[in-house]
Design a protein around this nucleic acid. Sequence first.
RNA 1: GGUGCGGUAGCCAAGCGGUUAGGCAGUGGAUUGCAAAUCCAUCUAGAUCGGUUCGACUCCGAUCCGCACCUCCA
Length: 466
Amino acid sequence: MAFRIFNTMSRTKEELIPLDGEHVRMYTCGPTVYNYAHIGNFRAYMFEDLLRRYIKFCGFKVTQVQNLTDVDDKTIRSSIQQGLPLKEYTKTYIDAFFEDLAKLNIEPAEHYPAATDYIDEMIQLIGTLFDKGYAYKSDDGSVYFSIDKFSEYGKLAHLDREGMQAGARVAQDEYDKENAADFALWKAYVPEDGDVVWDSPWGRGRPGWHIECSAMSMKLLGESFDIHTGGVDNIFPHHEDEIAQSEAATGKPYSRYWMHCGYLVVDGRKMSKSLGNFYTLREILDMGYTGREVRYELLSSHYRQSLNFAFKSLDANRAALKRLDEFYASLVEAAENNDVAGELPAWASETRKRFADAMDDDMNISGAMAAVFDTVHAGNKAMSDSPVSSREARAVLDLWSELDRVLGILIPQEEAIPSRVFDLLEDRKKARAEKNWAESDRIRDALAECGWTVKDTPVGPKLRKL
RNA sequence: GGUGCGGUAGCCAAGCGGUUAGGCAGUGGAUUGCAAAUCCAUCUAGAUCGGUUCGACUCCGAUCCGCACCUCCA
């Protein structure tokens, strides 16, 4: 059993073997905090969450770094518009970002470095690139990376230099770069930057976009580390440029595995404000969906596939989650507070292996979920024939916890039963004992208004949250 | 133009050269005071056209359609 992941660099699935054999160090491109993150962004963070969770499931340690890009054109422009200092402006969206992560049950990374806290490291890195002859200063005062000096430029995106001139957006280029595709390491100050400016050996200005990820990843994870992730749209230019500047500076391999998740589209089209299909997580939650339902949605397609987000699939997810919850509730009842796990029943004995086999194959979530749902079905069937022992039920519950450390959706939130609901349930029991069906149904409606549903079973009524 | 991905049943979505993927929805039945949940049964597949093969949804080729990236968008 080995965890194999698709490496964008080699375009093949490779076994994940950490540099030091036991500890996976990963860098995941994070949000630009000039606005609330949208669900497309969260698709990427969800993929990274699943990845880190499964790496741990495999027995490795994980150190994950996720950067917060808190300085760029849009951030500066918006903060000035609102008359707020940059740090104050971005704080709102950084806080919101962490709230959203929690709503989606995304595990926190070990480090969340903000770009503006690592300016010194970036300046140092640019200095090294100057010393080694990869950087040059242009007449406008900006510093660029010369891609012609880095012969491997294009190895990640599989772009050849000649092909690049055909690019649609390259033509309109500016200044006096040596090569139109050279990218900025340091941007000279312009009045539009307001007071967002730092001193550097090359004059006042601010860092380019790519340099922050190189500086922060190497500072926190070392010059060579294991995994670097992002959306497919980051492959070029962002990750290509990171490789160039990092490897040019250190002479060492940068990230060993590159993983990229597919785009999220809404109703078959790219999410955009002009199409009106642009959603933030909080908008979706305001519509009454839960973070867990959104998590299920973002999780349930293979990460390299484009994911078609649709509200009707959120509704379908709700039904699927109910099915999982019903199964879980049956197990809890059968376990009868028994803490001692016995053997897994036959119907759950293959589950873990099937789950792991699927996930080992580049995180085949569909196969993994099939293992889960097959177990639900087989378990329901077995339990409807004959009760499962409390020790067996406990064993399955333990298995469920283990799988949920990867999935983060299997185990429902415990809901305390309000006393009013409990009283109504008692009243209804009496009414049913007297075969007073009208009263019984009336109470059932009252319970529904409280948000609870009641099911009558051979062993008595059972409450479920609606 | 270059690079890459995809077209699977009503919807979503996998693996696989020959044996039920899975989820949601639908239909019939069991069960229930009625429900709910659950179980049993059941209906819809593999864009098109060729080729390879004893046999292809799965391999090869062509065609059609959709999508993404090609300088700062996860």
